[in-house]
Amino acid sequence: MSPVDGAGASNPNLPVDRAVTVGREPSSSPEQIPQLSEVDCPAELKERIEALMARYPDRKSASIPALWAVQERYGWCTPEGIRQAAAVMRVTPAYLESVASFYDLLHTERVGEHRIEVCTNISCWMRGGDELLDAFRAAAEGEDIFVTGFECLGACDIAPMAAIDQRYFGPLVPGEAKTAIDQLLSGDAVLPEKSLEKRPLAGDTEVQR
């Protein structure tokens, strides 16, 4: 019998394919699903993930929402947080980490207290997205704020735009980056007039640049 679940492993009548199995014997200490008692998972996080799992026919479907919950609690997907979620979901931490590392909005490294994504895709680029990103980078210098260029955020009508802590603002001029960051740090409402919610339907206003 082949030691791995590869060719020949499922059917004992087939010859074992040495090329597939040699040197690929399973590790003597494969990663285990952590026990809940080992991970010290906060009660609310556990309850939240359990509620998320209950929404789906298959508990694994909750992996992205569970990682969102971890990120919300710890600011990013910490190895500890991932272990806690893995214990609740009864999957290996490596599984959740593989999911987290696939998606741009889940962070597997510490990012700042606030997150700013500046769109630099085609429509925003045409209207000065690169300059806006530079302005945000300069204004956030030395602060605990994560600024990154981002692919199309789906708000080309307010180009150039930025998502500040998951809320959309635009059209922005580079000078507004500093204002936005000052407001963010002092806890004021950020650029209330530039919020997407304020935007009338179908471009009733002219955007000039």
């Binding site: 085609i122 429509s123 045409m126 209207r127 080309c156 009508d157 307010i158 180009a159 339907l201 179908a202 471009g203 009733d204 206003t205 002219e206 955007v207 000039q208």
Partner: peptide, 29 residues
């Protein structure tokens, strides 16, 4: 959805088959 180098970028609902020129020059300005 019309965006890029136009005066009034935004969402416009049209009956399919409207001339593209109208879309860009009339609706999006």
């Amino acid at each position: 959805s019309i965006s890029g180098g136009v005066r009034r970028p935004g969402n416009y609902e049209i009956s399919l088959g409207l001339p593209t020129r109208d879309l860009i020059y009339e609706l999006a300005g």
